[in-house]
């Protein structure tokens, strides 16, 4: 049986398998078709129906299950939903267990949430440092401007204020008003 305890391990392994079998296009299709449209259909339905309150319900539940020690912080206002990951439970599992079968595991989050948010009418500002820290701001599509200033949405919980945000080994990938996993700028 394939288990859920080490889900992030075989999930990441599967990305590498898809890339070897069908290239990057198959990996992208997997994130969208299998994760966004099928596995996480409950998230899409909730966010499409309720918007930012739906995001709060979805991530409030799922992150408490995945990260009961609260390695994250959620902020929300009428015009923005934000998550700061201080210790990503998913990336953290891979780092702790020295698992790597795919080039950039962190891309999977934009791989399924990007298309989902596009369908729901939202765009994403995001940065991840590949060391288990990242931040996400989700706003209605068409909102102008670039990244919000550090601390302006989540105060002192902003992941960019972490002392190890740019530690050795940390490499930032950045998305600005994006919905596509390939729209990142290093």
């Amino acid at each position: 049986m394939i288990g859920c305890y080490d889900f992030c391990g075989h999930y990441e392994w599967t990305f590498g398998w898809f890339e070897r079998v069908g290239g990057h296009a198959l990996v992208r299709a997997y994130w969208d078709e299998a994760i966004n449209l099928d596995s996480q259909a409950h998230a899409r339905d909730l966010i499409k129906a309720e918007g930012i309150p739906g995001m709060l319900k979805y991530w409030g539940h799922t992150l408490l299950e995945e990260s009961p020690d609260l390695g994250f912080h959620i902020s929300h206002r009428e015009d923005v939903f934000r998550i700061d990951f201080h210790q990503c439970p998913s990336r953290g599992f891979l780092l702790r267990n020295d698992l790597k079968n795919y080039g950039d595991y962190c891309d999977h989050c934009m791989g399924w949430t990007g298309p989902m948010m596009k369908e729901c009418g939202y765009q994403i500002d995001h940065e991840h440092n590949h060391r288990g820290q990242c931040w996400w701001e989700i706003r209605p599509a068409g909102t102008p401007g670039g990244h919000a200033p550090v601390g302006s949405v989540s105060g002192d919980k902003d992941a960019r204020l972490l002392p190890n945000w740019l530690a050795p080994g940390a490499k930032l990938d950045r998305y600005t008003k994006a919905n596509d996993p390939d729209d990142k700028t290093p």
């Binding site: 859920c4 889900f7 999930y11 299998a34 596995s39 990260s67 020690d69 702790r96």
Partner: peptide
């Protein structure tokens, strides 16, 4: 492999089926 929580998150079963 080890994790910081004692049991996995059951909603991941959805993704295995998908």
């Amino acid at each position: 492999y080890t994790d910081t929580k004692p049991v996995g998150s059951a909603d991941f079963y959805f993704a295995i089926n998908s």
